[in-house]
Design a protein around this nucleic acid. Sequence first.
DNA 1: ATCTTTGCAAACTTTTTGCACCAAT
DNA 2: ATTGGTGCAAAAAGTTTGCAAAGAT
Lengths: 137, 137
Amino acid sequence: MTQVDEILERLRQDGGRVTAARRIVVSALVDTPGPLTAEQLAEVVQAEHPEIHLATIYRTLDALHELGVVQHTHVGHGPAVYSIGSSHQHLVCEVCGEVIDLPPELLDELRATLRKRYKFQLDVGHVALLGRCTRHR
Amino acid sequence: MTQVDEILERLRQDGGRVTAARRIVVSALVDTPGPLTAEQLAEVVQAEHPEIHLATIYRTLDALHELGVVQHTHVGHGPAVYSIGSSHQHLVCEVCGEVIDLPPELLDELRATLRKRYKFQLDVGHVALLGRCTRHR
DNA sequence: ATCTTTGCAAACTTTTTGCACCAAT
DNA sequence: ATTGGTGCAAAAAGTTTGCAAAGAT
């Protein structure tokens, strides 16, 4: 069973329906590596299926989010970026928008400190860390 | 010289003008502790001066940002929060919106790691870390 | 047959902008 | 007198929603 079929199956098991649009959106998401915005995903999808509306992309991403299949991250000003898989921290270059995925362990210590000193449970993955990448100092 | 006058003076030295609206917005900003949204600042301002438009608040915050007097931070979904003073990291509770200011040293180690391992210069202060505060686990 | 999803247009939220008038220098 | 700021209304940008028709189960 392909990754796409697995995801569609989970949608069905959740009481959802496996529609043509969802098949196409999920395929595009699986085939396109790295975090991307809803708009970018729509472009990929609409290259072959222009009838699939941006609202459908948002709704599909939403359904997948409820299943825990995709995460989204808010990046400074611009639009949110969505990515498949489990929650992790993103690094985003403020100049070029490059997104770097960080290994979760990198924040273990900070997470521990915040929990102990501030009684705060860090939720990485929902907002990105901003900064500047090599090419833009 | 009060903090308000200092800030207004810097505006003037930058070629800007010290208007009634700016005096009022800067006073409200100085008098209201903690990070707040443009909307919240507008409410404070408009309680006494309803003629001051939200657009003026944004433009004043923008002018102050260019002077380095205020910073703003993007908080997950909602609106940006503005605060006076130098850049620092915010912790925001996803449930209640509570904002906690973090001492900058707390991120020194992470910053060093990102610089060495990812050649990435972290810009704390422009996006918040999300999570859950004590009351909302 | 039922209940979900779709496409569309319109609403919504936050922020920005064009413009004519007003005010600070 | 000149230049920059203000209020207003309208536009942007990103996302969500109401609705009738279409489609999946």
